[in-house]
Each structure stands twice: as C-alpha cells, then as structure tokens.
Simulated scan of single mutants.
Amino acid sequence: MIKRVDASEEALQVIAQLQERYGALMFHQSGGCCDGSQPMCFEDGDFKVGESDILLGTVANCPFYMSRDQFEYWKHTQLTLHITKGRGSSFSLEIPMGIRFIIKSRLFTDEELQILESQQES
C-alpha cells in the first residue's frame, strides 16, 4: 500500500511525546499563507475540519488532513512529516518544545500513482 503521508523517525518520537501529554492528536495543513503553510498538530477534535478538507491518511494513528485546494497541488507527491528546530508562529502543540513540524516531499513514480488510483477504486 502506498502512503500519501508518512513521518520521519524524529517526528514519530515527538508525536509519541505529545500523545503522552495530550492523548489523541490530529494534523492539518491548509492552503493558507504563513501558519497554514506548515503542518499543525492539535488535540484530536480541536481543529474543526470541514467539507473543504480531505483525509490524506494517518501518522502514528493520528489523522492527517489537508485542504482540498492544497491537495490539488500536492496530489503527485508523498509527504513526510518531519521536525526542525525553531519556533513556528501558530497554535501547534510542538511549539513550546522549540521545534516545529515541516513537510518534506517527493514526487510519486508513475507506478506508485497507478497503485494509488487502484487503492482509491477499491
């Protein structure tokens, strides 16, 4: 199975720490500018997803949503949730830790895109 979203080992460690403190989590990446252009982590249910958001998959049992408009730009890429030092300017839960989540991406191969299409049909 091809994943649309995955996480680095470093990101998984941070997610585990946040889950220990806050419980169930969720991620959202909108198509907005500034804060919305980075993935944000919330306690599950604290961010209200709407009809314009789609579920890309899960990372460490956390749903990862993206705005439909943003997905149109990213649909040919696999996203990998990662962390970097520095403070983001949002309400994301990792901010007090002196780090922030970022996205690294790579283009899917033609074969992977075909598999993704078949996964959606089943």
Rank of each mutant, 00 (worst) to 15 (best):
K85D: 14
Q70F: 10
F71S: 00
H28E: 06
E117Q: 03
S52F: 13
S105N: 06
T77Y: 05
Q70T: 07
S118A: 07
F108N: 08
V59H: 12
C33Q: 06
Q114C: 07
R106N: 04
E111S: 10
Y22P: 13
G57N: 06
P63Y: 07
Y73I: 13
V5H: 00
L107E: 06
T58F: 02
N61Y: 03
P39Q: 05
S105L: 14
Q119S: 09
L116Y: 14
E9Y: 12
D53Y: 05
E9I: 02
I115F: 02
G50P: 12
G98N: 01
F64W: 01
Q38K: 04
S37K: 14
E72D: 03
K85G: 04
L81M: 06
S92H: 03
R100P: 08
V49L: 09
V59E: 14
A24C: 06
F64P: 02
A24H: 04
Q19I: 11
E43L: 08
E9D: 12
E117I: 07
T84P: 09
T77I: 13
L12M: 13
G98Y: 07
V59G: 01
K3D: 02
Q19S: 10
G50C: 12
I15K: 08
M1Y: 06
G50Q: 08
L107V: 08
D69E: 15
G32T: 11
T77H: 03
I95K: 12
Y22L: 08
E9K: 04
F42W: 13
H82L: 01
S105Y: 09
G23F: 15
K85E: 10
V59N: 02
M97W: 05
A11G: 11
K48M: 11
L55S: 03
D35N: 12
L79Q: 02
G45F: 11
L55P: 08
S8I: 11
E112Y: 14
L18E: 07
T84K: 07
E117G: 06
A24M: 09
S118C: 04
K3R: 12
S122I: 15
F42K: 02
L116P: 11
G98A: 03
E94Q: 15
T58E: 09
E117N: 05
I103C: 00
S89I: 13
K85W: 01
L55E: 04
A11D: 04
E121S: 12
I83M: 00
M66L: 00
F47L: 05
L55C: 05
A60G: 02
F47V: 14
I103G: 00
R100T: 03
R21N: 10
T77R: 05
H76L: 11
I54G: 01
V49A: 00
S8T: 14
G50W: 07
I115K: 14
H82A: 05
E10R: 15
E9M: 06
Q19R: 13
G45D: 11
E10V: 14
L79N: 00
G32A: 06
S105F: 07
E112Q: 15
F108H: 04
H76F: 14
R87A: 01
S105E: 10
L18C: 13
K75W: 08
T109L: 06
V49T: 15
V14R: 05
Q114H: 03
I103T: 02
K85A: 04
K85S: 00
C34W: 10
Q70W: 13
F91S: 09
V59P: 11
S67W: 03
P63I: 03
L25C: 02
Q70G: 09
E10Y: 11
Y22M: 09
N61L: 02
K104N: 04
